[in-house]
Design a protein around this nucleic acid. Structure first.
Lengths: 182, 182
DNA sequence: AAATTTATGTCAGTCATATTGACATATCTT
DNA sequence: AAGATATGTCAATATGACTGACATAAATTT
């Protein structure tokens, strides 16, 4: 999916009825520029990985799972569901494939034996690493020529775009006590 | 789609037990931070619109179409296909719904009567405006506290993340002679 | 004028990813 | 023992995407 889904946000007081029938909501205020740039930037960003994934017979869903399992070793299935915001059934098929094909392994939790902690295998790491390399190339290229202060602003902006209401385990790691990551 | 599609990266030196076969490509260089922030930022950004779209019985595809038709009045069907990077068949159903329900109208081209130029109706403008308002709220909030130079850096970064190889009509408008939109 | 190309629309069949709801099992908590 | 939790799985469905084939109208070329 090339997801565009621009956003919504809140309430747009005036929106539609603005002048005549056309809403022209907050005329000059809407950030059409950023909205569009985010769409195209994200489209091309995820596009990098898509081609590579085809080679493995995987889709974006597999990438998402591999990414988080790799980054947060020992993630539980429930954590993954929170992060990806999909249902158990949707995750099930993808996760099963990754397990069957040896990209991920499960280990029973030490404290709670009902839990299946997920870990990437070397094979899984290789895949995730390859995909991150492609995306990193694009990011590095895009950051070229931007000074440290600018890079910091970019990080600040991206973080501020994320909902903090009910952070999942991964977001807690990103924003939590260890709030690093520009 | 909550598209994540990260990329690859590799190595995570320590992760689970990967040592061994894992590629660990360019270990310290991978931008896991930006990769992840882009995922979450985009997920929440598009999430804003999703809820609102449900009210109308529409999906993200409808939003994308409405957005570009609104922003670039008179866009041809072929242009839309280039921008959205989907097939005629996929666009067909969505576009037909929007036409049937009065969010968009078609006008035969003046020069070329085969063309169906697309325009948003006031009703369509209202919807797009509402969605853009929600997303703009998030963007404005995220940009708060960032100085002009930082905002410029963000725009520069997002633009640089976009492929420029074969720009479609919309990208030409964004980057072309009238390259504005920070 | 006839042939070809272009712009659009549409039909049929398929796929990937997602959904909800119902259950089953193992394990932890009370 | 009873109940709650973590996970897995089955069935049925929806959306948005795909390929390929074909039809029509209008423009362009020959």
């Amino acid at each position: 999916m090339t997801d565009i889904n621009f956003s919504k946000s809140a309430g747009d007081p005036d929106s539609k009825g603005a002048e005549g029938a056309s809403p022209a909501p907050r005329a000059g205020e809407l950030r059409w520029d950023i909205i569009e740039l985010l769409f195209f930037a994200y489209r091309d960003f995820v596009g990098d990985a898509d081609h590579e994934l085809e080679v493995f017979g995987f889709g974006r869903a597999h990438h998402r799972v591999m990414h988080f399992v790799h980054r947060y070793p020992g993630l539980k299935v429930a954590d993954l569901l929170d992060v990806l915001r999909i249902t158990k059934q949707s995750l099930g098929r993808v996760l099963k494939q990754l397990l069957d094909e040896g990209y991920i392994v499960q280990k029973t939790g030490n404290n709670d034996r009902r839990q299946r902690l997920l870990y990437a295998t070397p094979k899984g790491e290789a895949l995730v690493g390859k995909l991150a390399g492609l995306q990193t190339d694009r990011i590095t290229r895009a950051l070229g020529g931007i000074d440290p202060a600018g890079v910091a602003a970019i990080g600040q902006f991206l973080r501020a775009m994320i909902d903090r209401d009910d952070p999942d385990k991964v977001l807690e790691a990103i924003f939590g006590t260890s709030g690093k990551k520009t």
